[in-house]
C-alpha cells in the first residue's frame, strides 16, 4: 500500500479545529507528550510498515 496523500478527511475544518482545541489548555510539554501518544495510536491503526516508513520520511522532509 502507498501513503494516501489525497484528501481523505470528510470535514477538514472540523477535524483541524478538534485537533488544535484538544491541546488548548496544555503547556508545551503536555502537548508534546500528547502528540507522542497520538502518533503511536495512529501508527498502530495504520500498521502497514511501508506506509509508516513513507509517512516518516515525508514528515521528516517537511513538506
Amino acid at each position: 500500500m502507498m501513503l494516501n496523500l489525497a484528501p481523505n478527511i470528510a470535514d477538514p475544518d472540523d477535524f483541524y479545529a478538534e485537533l488544535v482545541n484538544s491541546q488548548r489548555n496544555l503547556d508545551e510539554e503536555q502537548a508534546l507528550r500528547m502528540n507522542a501518544r497520538l502518533i503511536l495510536l495512529l501508527a498502530n491503526h495504520i500498521g502497514d510498515r511501508t506506509v509508516l516508513t513513507e509517512a516518516i520520511a515525508r514528515a521528516r522532509a517537511a513538506g
Binding site: 510539554e29 508534546l32 507528550r33 502528540n35 507522542a36 501518544r37 502518533i39 503511536l40 495510536l41
Partner: peptide, 14 residues
C-alpha cells in the same frame, strides 16, 4: 533526547 523520552513514556502509559 527530550522528545524521544516523550515517545518512550507514551509507550509505557499506553
Amino acid at each position: 533526547t527530550k522528545v524521544s523520552r516523550y515517545f518512550r513514556d507514551a509507550v509505557l502509559e499506553l
